[in-house]
């Protein structure tokens, strides 16, 4: 391995890294928002909305992100909807992630025992208060492992962005391999930067999971 080559590549990767992170975390934010919204629609059986939510979840959970991105980025402009590549990436990740997050929240909400609701109602809490202070926070802590798992999954999925010509980490690596044949160095940096991006989330996730485990269960 040639360390001079590595040093000279670092700025390129750093730039790509920040682009990837930006799209990744904005997409995750969007995914959480969509996920909560969709899970509520389904949990409360909101007419029409619950139906649409169900179709959305099935569609996006059963298709690859790459395919969704191609449709958003190459397909939609043909009917007059042009979305810039970065927005496409964020939107695609958000839509894909939303369907996964929705499932996590929904099963969290569904696994709160009825006796918990009754306990809250018996204290005089209204249904709204019961949901806000008891059911939702409990469901949220039950959902933590799933949310973290999905975050890692979504950050990994960012690796397909180069397909819609976003200059992310994969794009940079591919470019350098193609241009200069410094394959080993290019791949080495690729791995390092993905470790920097994902290892902290993975470790933090494990810590958080253990913490939540103590608080939940067995009341």
């Amino acid at each position: 391995m040639n360390f001079d080559v590595i040093t000279s590549y670092i700025p390129l990767y750093t730039e790509a890294f920040f682009l990837t992170i930006r799209i990744g975390w904005t997409g995750i934010g969007l995914a959480l928002f969509i996920g909560v919204f969709v899970a509520f629609a389904q949990h409360f059986r909101v007419p029409v909305l619950a139906r649409i939510a169900g179709i959305y979840v099935e569609l996006f959970r059963n298709t690859p992100l790459l395919c969704q991105l191609f449709f958003l980025y190459f397909g939609l402009p043909k009917i007059g909807i042009t979305i810039p590549a970065e927005t496409c990436g964020t939107l695609g990740l958000g839509l894909l992630g939303g369907s996964y997050m929705a499932e996590v929240f929904r099963s969290g909400l569904g696994s709160i025992p009825v006796t918990q609701e009754e306990g809250a109602l018996a204290l005089g809490l209204t249904r709204r208060q019961m949901f806000t202070y008891v059911v939702f926070p409990e469901a949220l802590s039950l959902s933590v492992p799933g949310i973290v798992g999905n975050m890692i999954f979504l950050l990994k999925e960012t690796s397909v962005f180069s397909a819609i010509s976003l200059m992310d980490l994969m794009f940079t690596a591919k470019d350098l391999i193609g241009l200069y044949y410094n394959t080993t160095e290019a791949l080495f940096l690729l791995v390092i930067f993905y470790i920097i991006m994902l290892l902290p989330v993975s470790v933090l996730g494990s810590i958080l999971e253990n913490k939540v485990k103590i608080r939940t269960y067995g009341a």
């Binding site: 960012t158 394959t183 690729l190 993975s202």
Partner: peptide, 23 residues
Amino acid sequence: LETVRIMPQMVLLFIVYFGATKA
């Protein structure tokens, strides 16, 4: 398991395909 958990499949594909084949 941790490697698989945090490494995108895309990166693994590049490592095996370009790393092994080309390098």
